[in-house]
Every structure is written in C-alpha cells, then in structure tokens.
C-alpha cells in the first residue's frame, strides 16, 4: 500500500485538519466532531443543507461547502457512513430556523445513521427533510431490494438544492427541487483498478491486468460484469446506452453531462470519454447544456470513471447555472 499518509487510522482526522488549514476563511470544523460547515453557518433565512457519508470520495462532500451549495458535510470513516451523533451536530449547526435538508446517498448504512440523526433533531424541534439519491443504473434488480446506489449524480443534487436554498426557498421547495434532480439524474461507472482502504491495507477486489469492471460502485461494489478491457469509445457507449435506456431521453431534450474520474484516472482519459459521450448525444439530437469533466465523486485512487446525465427543464437549468462559491464547484 503506497499512500501519502501518516497513520491509516488517522487519515480522516488529518484530512479534515488539512482542509481547514487550506480554507480557514471558508469552512470551519465543529469542535470535537468530523463535521465541516460553511464559515458563516447557520445562514439566516436559509434552509440548511447537510450531506456526507463515508470519506474517500473527495471532493465529496466537504468540497461542496460554500455559498450556493452545502452548509455542512459530515465525514465518516473511509467508506463508512458517519454516525448519527455527528450528523445531528451538523443539523444543529446549520439550522437557522428554516429547517434542514439531508442529502443522503442510497446505502443502508447512510440511511440508517442519517435517519437516527433526523429523529434526534426532530425531537429537539428542528424541521428536517431527507432525500435519498439513487442515480446508479448499473445494478437493475437491486431496485426490488435495497434500490439503486447513489453516486456522482449526488453532486447535481447538492448544486441545485443549494441554489434553491440560497434563494430563500422553504424547506418543502428545496426538498422538491432535490427530488426533481433525483428523478432526472442517472449515472453509471466502471473501474480499471481497485483501491485500498488505508485501514484495510489491501485492495477490496481484484482485477486482472487486462480486466475491467462495468457498473462498479464507488466503494468497489461489483457491477454488471467483469470483462476484458475495451476501448474508451466502447466503454463510453455502454455506460451512456444504459443511462439513456433508463432516463428515456428523446430528441430536443436538454441535459447536463458529468464525466467523473474515480481518483486515479488522468483528466486526459476523461476527455477522451467525453468526446464519445458528446458524439452519442449529438447523434440522438439531445442538447448538451453544460459539461463537467473531473474528479467529483471519487473512490480513493481507483482508476475508472462514471458518466452522469441530468435531464434539465427550465427550472433545473437556471438552478444549475446559478452562482456557486463551493470549493470544488465554482460557477
């Protein structure tokens, strides 16, 4: 395991300290917690937005703290949902009286921990709403069990719900905007190499020198198939087809595209993927409103990518385009 770390058990703690050291004027840490909040939280007259989850997905979620996006990010251990007490502290710190929206990725652990926190906050009289992001179309029949996983599409939820909240909308309105994104966003990923959780010290799965996994989740959860590695264009086609199937996009529909790197993939390769994705969309007369290429929802040093499409209407377009001062998503 080759990592720039000091102690596998202290990576989250030291990352948080490093983030606060980097952005002392933009974020602060709630003392004694693993919660990072906007420097100016709670923002008066604004619904508070809390997200978080296991660490190892940076810049998710603390990179999305800032005006126009999140108010608090709760950092769990690597790939492990944070605990309810931490989420509860986050909720209390960002509530200005207008209520708090929890943006949760659809994993059993995240849902249970955030739910318990919500119960604690509600018991204290704080209005809490929850949305669960489930954009990953890789594993279909999980819909009948735990449902789809939440991956890179979550960033669009942060952005759009954040813009809505920044306008002074009510908790119900912010929740509705977040839900609209969730209904209209789909993603799918693939991996070329695994990643190593520092405390585990060895990869979570194996991929041969010529293998890749299509439909891989952001914690190394397996996907649809392990196959021989294929050219970038074929990979882009597979991911995009699967998304288009599910999202039922037609001619003249408008989308935002995210080509997300999983942490170990050079930007060059992401652009090569985007080239093909854009070509496919053009071929179907789907309008690309905007494209985001980079590391948005990573999986430590995993090599691979995910493709996300968000179907836009007028409201979503406007909220996506709205100003944002978030560390990793400036608009």
């Amino acid at each position: 395991m080759k990592k720039l770390i000091n102690n596998p058990d202290r990576v989250v703690e030291e990352m948080i300290e490093g983030m606060v050291a980097a952005y002392p004027n933009r974020i602060r840490r709630l003392p004694g917690t693993t919660v990072l909040v906007r420097k100016d939280a709670p923002v008066q007259g604004k619904v508070g937005l809390v997200s978080g989850g296991g660490s190892g997905h940076e810049p998710s979620h603390a990179g999305y703290l800032g005006k126009g996006m999140l108010d608090a990010a709760v950092c769990g251990e690597v790939f492990t949902s944070p605990t309810p007490d931490q989420v509860y502290e986050a909720i209390k710190a960002v509530d200005s009286g207008k209520g708090v929206l929890l943006i949760i990725k659809n994993y059993t652990g995240d849902i249970m921990n955030f739910e318990m926190a919500a119960e604690m906050a509600e018991a204290e009289g704080i209005k809490v709403a929850k949305v669960v992001v489930n954009d990953d179309v890789a594993v279909e029949n999980s819909t009948y069990t735990t449902g789809r996983r939440g991956i890179a599409g979550t960033v669009f939820v942060h952005k759009i719900a954040g813009a809505m909240a920044e306008r002074g909308a009510s908790l119900e309105e912010v929740e509705a905007a977040a839900k609209k994104v969730i209904e209209n966003v789909r993603s799918m990923g693939m991996a070329l190499t695994p990643c190593i959780v520092p405390a585990a010290g060895k990869p979570g799965f194996e991929l041969g020198e010529k293998e890749m996994e299509i439909g891989m989740g952001i914690h190394g959860e397996p996907g649809i198939e392990k196959t021989e590695i294929r050219p970038a264009d074929e990979i882009a086609q597979t991911l995009t087809d699967k998304i288009l199937d599910d999202l039922k996009l037609g001619e003249k529909d408008k989308v935002a595209v995210m080509i997300n790197g999983l942490g170990g993939t050079p930007l060059m390769e992401l652009y090569i993927i985007n080239r093909k994705v854009a070509e496919i969309l053009k071929g179907k007369n789907i309008e690309i409103h905007d494209t985001f290429v980079g590391n948005y929802m990573t999986s430590l040093e995993m090599a691979g990518c995910s493709v996300t499409l968000l179907k836009l209407d007028e409201q979503l377009t406007e909220l996506l385009d709205a100003e944002s001062d978030a560390i990793a998503f400036k608009r």
Binding site: G54, Q86, G109, M112, N113, M116
Partner: peptide, 14 residues
C-alpha cells in the same frame, strides 16, 4: 456503538 461504528452495523447493533 451508535457513536463509533457507523456504516450499517453501527445503527443496527446500537
């Protein structure tokens, strides 16, 4: 357990 485990098993055992 609730405060230290996290993940799915934390809330469950908790």
């Amino acid at each position: 357990l609730i405060g230290k485990v996290g993940g799915a098993s934390g809330p469950l055992y908790g």
